[in-house]
Computed example of a mutant assay.
Amino acid sequence: MNRKMQWLRNKLLSMDLQGMIVSNPVNIRYLTNIQAEGILLVTRKENIFLTDSRYIEDVHNTLTLFDEIVVYDMRGLSIDDYENFFMFCENVGFEENYVTYAKYKEYMHRFKINNFVETENMIEKQRMIKDEEEIESIQKACKVTDDCFEYILGYIKPGMTEKQIAREIDDYYYKNAEGTSFDTIVASGENSSKPHAVPTDRKIQEKDIITIDMGCKIDGYCSDMTRTFFVGEIPEEMKKVYDLVLKNQVQTLNDMREGYSTKMLAKMVDNDFRLNNYDLIHALGHGVGLDIHESPIISTRSENILKENMVVTDEPGIYIAGQFGIRIEDTVLITKGGCEALTKSNKEYVVI
């Protein structure tokens, strides 16, 4: 049995759960590498993946004998088959933050479950700590992201639209990785004041500010990086804001290490911004993995403690409505004595 499935079985045992239904496809991929539609059943004696005939061949090609996962075509299962999977299981776990109420009732009825128990995001919590293979995939994705940024700086010219630049970034990722890890953000001029701006037909102009937030996937694992740069020259009023954001971004990198409070990290940035009459209007960072946004969240309202081999972002930003915004973001690996920025693109003033 693979290491992650064995961990899950041991965890269920410690929680007095005799089985579990895993239905979140990201958690299924994390545990088994399966990317096909279906659900994973952890029963008293077996690990079972239920899918349909469209995916059987693909699933069998993914799994090995070592995985010890039995695959069934759900179309061939009888009512008795479903009811027997969790026979003699007093408590069965489910993913309460993923399963809808309608699906909850369906599972209870179909599998004849006695006691359906919330599992409190235990798989998502385990995903926060990356193993060597996961870290290597994220490092590769970050390298492609750095290469893309270098490429796009040479590509952008005044007169191009935000949409045109975003399409070029997306094309780069589909040629050099598995595609984008989220919808690429290209925000220029006054559009940069919107943290999650959508690329528009606005054309790049001389003396513009441009914020690009982008990432890609390797082996399913994400990268995430934001850089803000300038066209032609840097307006003086933007330099002060840029310097303040960069100072706090670098200071956060200096402070990140195992054992550090995520709330304290965010409070320090928020306090410095407030001293300068700005606000930290979004989280300072978030976990990165198979999902682009994972636990832990780094914010003034979070109560998490950083641990070795977590991968998180460090992304302070200041936004002045209707004028401009500046955000600088790295994907970061937490270590015992500090951290390592996995995205390494230049963060000093960049003028194209």
Rank of each mutant, 00 (worst) to 15 (best):
M5L: 15
W7S: 04
R9K: 15
R9Q: 07
M15V: 00
L17T: 02
L17S: 05
V26Y: 14
V26S: 11
N27W: 06
N27Q: 14
A36E: 15
I39F: 03
L40R: 07
L41P: 08
V42Y: 06
F49G: 11
L50C: 10
D52Q: 02
D52G: 02
Y55Q: 08
V59E: 13
F66C: 02
V71R: 06
G76K: 07
S78N: 06
D81Y: 04
D81A: 10
Y82I: 07
N84I: 07
F85V: 08
F85K: 03
F86W: 12
M87R: 14
C89L: 05
G93A: 08
E96T: 03
T100M: 07
Y101S: 14
K105M: 12
E106Q: 13
H109Y: 13
I113C: 09
I113H: 06
N114A: 13
T119A: 08
N121V: 00
I123V: 10
I123A: 10
Q126A: 04
R127S: 11
I129H: 07
E132F: 02
E133I: 10
I135Q: 11
D147T: 00
L153H: 10
I156G: 05
I156V: 15
K157H: 15
K157S: 14
G159A: 05
A166E: 09
A166I: 00
R167G: 00
I169L: 07
I169T: 04
Y172H: 03
Y172P: 04
Y174D: 10
N176A: 03
N176Q: 07
A177C: 03
A177H: 08
G179I: 04
T180D: 03
I185N: 11
V186C: 10
V186E: 11
S188F: 01
S188N: 14
N191L: 08
S192N: 05
P195S: 06
R202M: 08
I209W: 03
I210R: 04
C216K: 03
R227S: 06
V231D: 06
V231A: 05
E233C: 06
K240T: 11
V241Q: 09
L244Y: 11
L244W: 11
V245N: 10
L246H: 12
K247P: 00
K247Y: 11
N248L: 01
V250N: 12
V250R: 15
V250A: 04
L253Q: 08
E258Q: 09
E258K: 07
K263Y: 03
A266F: 09
N271I: 08
D272G: 08
R274E: 15
N276I: 01
N277R: 13
Y278D: 06
D279W: 05
D279P: 00
L280C: 10
I281K: 10
L284G: 09
G285N: 08
G289Q: 02
G289V: 00
S295H: 02
P296Q: 02
I297L: 09
I297P: 01
N304L: 05
L306E: 01
N309Y: 04
V311E: 12
V312I: 15
V312F: 10
T313D: 12
T313I: 02
D314T: 12
D314A: 15
E315N: 13
G317F: 10
G317W: 10
Q323A: 14
G325R: 04
I326G: 08
I328K: 11
T331S: 09
T331E: 11
K336F: 05
E340T: 13
T343V: 02
N346P: 01
K347I: 14
V351P: 08
